Simulated scan of single mutants.
Amino acid sequence: MTLTVEDAIHEAMETWRRLGLEPDTTDEMAEELAADLTAAAFDGRSVTDYIGGDIDALATSWAIERGLLPTPPVPQGDRPRGGQGRGPTRRGRRRPLAGGHTRRPPRPQQ
């Protein structure tokens, strides 16, 4: 079955309503999705190609990107370990982005 613009918008709106978004917000997002899908069709892309096959995931990510839903936590196995992160450490120092030193240089011996 070929996914139409109307089907995609309907399914996205159902997802946004299920997620608890306000009706005015879902209407605005549906208009934007319709414009994007129409532009993609003019460029020769199918609805499925534009959406990536998962309307629920696309609709949810749009809501998260707009700050309408809380950002989902990163699964434990996907978190950076050791000095791999870029945020502050527990002591307030920043970790290096790549290849820098994380410790003070050794003190000269006397």
Rank of each mutant, 00 (worst) to 15 (best):
T89L: 05
Q76Y: 04
V47M: 14
P105L: 02
V5K: 15
R104C: 06
D36V: 12
T26V: 06
R86H: 02
P80F: 03
D54H: 09
G85Y: 04
T26P: 11
R94H: 10
R45M: 15
A8S: 07
G83E: 02
L97C: 09
P105G: 08
G20K: 07
L68M: 09
A40P: 13
R45F: 12
P88E: 07
R95M: 11
W16R: 12
L37I: 11
G83D: 07
L37H: 01
H101M: 10
I64T: 02
T60V: 02
L21Y: 08
E65W: 05
R81K: 04
A30G: 14
Q84G: 14
L33H: 06
A57H: 11
E6A: 13
A40G: 15
H101Y: 06
Q76V: 05
P23W: 05
P88L: 02
G99K: 04
I9D: 11
G92L: 01
P88I: 00
R91C: 00
L58A: 12
L97Q: 05
G83L: 06
W16N: 06
G52P: 15
E65D: 11
E14K: 10
P88H: 01
L21T: 06
D36R: 14
P70H: 01
R91G: 04
R107T: 10
I55V: 06
P73Y: 00
R104A: 05
F42S: 09
A12Y: 08
R17L: 02
A35K: 11
S61E: 14
T15N: 03
A39D: 14
T25P: 11
P72R: 10
H10F: 13
D56V: 14
S61V: 12
G85W: 03
M1C: 01
Q84A: 08
G87T: 06
E14S: 14
L58S: 07
E14C: 08
L21R: 03
E11W: 00
Q110R: 12
V74G: 07
A40T: 08
R103G: 15
L68K: 04
L68C: 09
G92R: 01
G53M: 10
R103Q: 15
A30W: 09
G92I: 01
R18S: 14
E6P: 00
D36G: 12
P105E: 00
T60P: 05
Y50M: 13
L69C: 07
A57G: 09
W62A: 04
V5F: 04
R95T: 06
G77I: 00
Q76G: 06
R86F: 02
R93K: 08
T25Q: 05
A41N: 04
T38Q: 07
R79A: 09
P72V: 15
A8M: 04
E32S: 11
T89R: 04
